[in-house]
Computed example of a mutant assay.
Amino acid sequence: MSPPHPWLSVLVPFYRVEPYLRECVESVLAQVDGGVEIVLLDDASPDDCGTIARELRKSHGEVIRLLGHDRNRGIAEARNTLLADARGDYVWFLDSDDLMLPGAIAGLKAAIERTGADLVLCDFRVVRERMALKHRLRGEYHRSTFSGRDNQLESDRGVLLRGLMAARQLHPWSKIARRSCWGTAPFPPGRVVMEDMAAIPALVANVRTFVHVAEPWIGYRQRPGSALATLDAGKFRDVLASVRELHGAFADDPGLDARTRFAIDYFCIRALSSVAHRITGEQPALARELRDTLQRLFPGGLRVLLEECRRRGWWLRRRRISKGIERLERLA
Rank of each mutant, 00 (worst) to 15 (best):
S273N: 00
L11P: 04
L331D: 01
W182E: 06
D118A: 07
D265K: 04
L290P: 01
G34E: 15
R57C: 06
P284K: 10
R149S: 13
R73P: 00
P4G: 09
P299T: 13
P189G: 06
E195S: 13
I325F: 12
I75T: 11
G34T: 09
R57I: 00
D123R: 05
V204G: 01
L108S: 02
R296S: 14
V25Y: 08
L21H: 01
P172H: 09
I325Q: 06
E55Y: 03
R311K: 14
A287I: 01
L66N: 00
D156R: 11
R143D: 07
A258Q: 13
S27I: 05
M165V: 02
D85H: 14
Q222R: 11
H171V: 12
W173Y: 14
P299N: 12
P4I: 08
E55I: 02
Q295S: 12
L297C: 11
W217A: 12
V10S: 09
Y266M: 10
P254C: 08
P46F: 01
L29N: 01
R73I: 02
H5S: 15
R149M: 09
L331E: 02
G300S: 11
L316E: 13
T230V: 10
C309Q: 10
R237F: 10
V275Y: 03
L66T: 00
P216M: 14
D43H: 04
G163E: 10
R288G: 01
C268L: 01
R168K: 14
W314Q: 13
L83T: 02
E18S: 07
V32K: 05
L316F: 10
M194A: 15
P6I: 09
G88E: 03
T280I: 04
E113V: 07
P188W: 11
D257P: 07
E37R: 08
D98Y: 04
H212E: 06
N80H: 02
P13L: 04
V32T: 14
E154P: 03
R87H: 05
V127C: 11
K58V: 06
D265E: 15
S45G: 09
E37G: 05
V304Q: 12
A106S: 13
A132I: 03
L294W: 08
G148M: 10
F267Q: 03
R136D: 05
Y20D: 13
L108C: 05
A271Q: 13
T51C: 03
W92L: 11
G324R: 07
Y90D: 06
L137V: 13
Y266H: 15
S27A: 07
F146H: 08
A199S: 15
L82V: 05
R128A: 11
A110G: 09
V207T: 12
G225R: 04
V275W: 03
G313F: 05
R114G: 06
V36R: 00
S9M: 13
P188C: 11
C122Y: 04
L256S: 09
A233M: 01
C24R: 02
S96P: 04
I321V: 15
A78M: 03
L246Q: 02
L294S: 02
F93D: 00
R303L: 09
A177W: 08
V304K: 10
V39P: 00
H171L: 12
V120L: 09
P186M: 07
S45Y: 06
D43K: 02
A205E: 15
R73Q: 07
V120T: 11
G88W: 02
V211R: 05
T260G: 10
F124V: 04
